[in-house]
């Protein structure tokens, strides 16, 4: 629980999740509602909203958690061009010229959500150079993107 809220704070967002509705399976965390909770017995595989997992003490968020953080409203966000959108989904970093809008912190080193022009959360990255300065090259490093769904499918084949 602490790891999840601490992760949200890295984006400047404050998450309020009900502790009693978070269920843990091995190293994975899920958010359930009151109706689903009695069905999430000890040996379930997946339940409700997958929030993320902890591996070697590090928290890896799910894309649904990123969406929840985005909906919270105060999280750092950048909106990127359509051209940069697919490059980001393919794992590439974001060039300064492809950033259309910045919300929240612009500071180097902080995490920021990456949004499409339609307002969809595509993943998140780490700001490499202060965005106020108008970065010429790579401005945001890709940390995680929704192309991961495809990469997971390919890995299984």
């Amino acid at each position: 629980m602490k790891k999840i809220t601490a992760f949200a704070r890295e984006f400047g967002a404050k998450l309020e999740l009900r502790r009693n509705l978070i269920v843990k399976k091995n190293n994975r965390y899920f958010l359930v509602d009151e109706k689903l909770k009695p069905f999430a017995l000890d040996n379930f595989y997946f339940a409700g909203i997958y929030l993320g997992k902890v591996k070697k003490s590090k928290f890896f968020p799910s894309f649904e958690l990123l969406r929840i953080i985005a909906e919270e409203g105060k999280a750092n966000q950048i909106t990127i061009t359509e051209r940069a959108e697919w490059l980001f989904i393919c794992g590439r970093d974001i060039f300064g010229k492809n950033i259309l809008k910045v919300k929240g912190s612009t500071k180097r080193g902080v995490h920021t959500l990456v949004m499409s022009k339609h307002g969809d959360c595509l993943g998140f990255g780490r700001i490499l150079h202060d965005l106020k300065d108008g970065v010429a090259g790579v401005a945001v490093k890709n940390v995680s993107d929704i192309g991961d769904f495809l990469r997971r499918e390919r890995q299984r084949r």
Binding site: V32, K35, L36, N43, F44, Y45, I49, R67, F149
Partner: peptide
């Protein structure tokens, strides 16, 4: 997860 399903438990 991709389709943002929230009401399902899998066994």
């Amino acid at each position: 997860e991709r389709c943002r399903i929230r009401n399902t438990v899998v066994y």
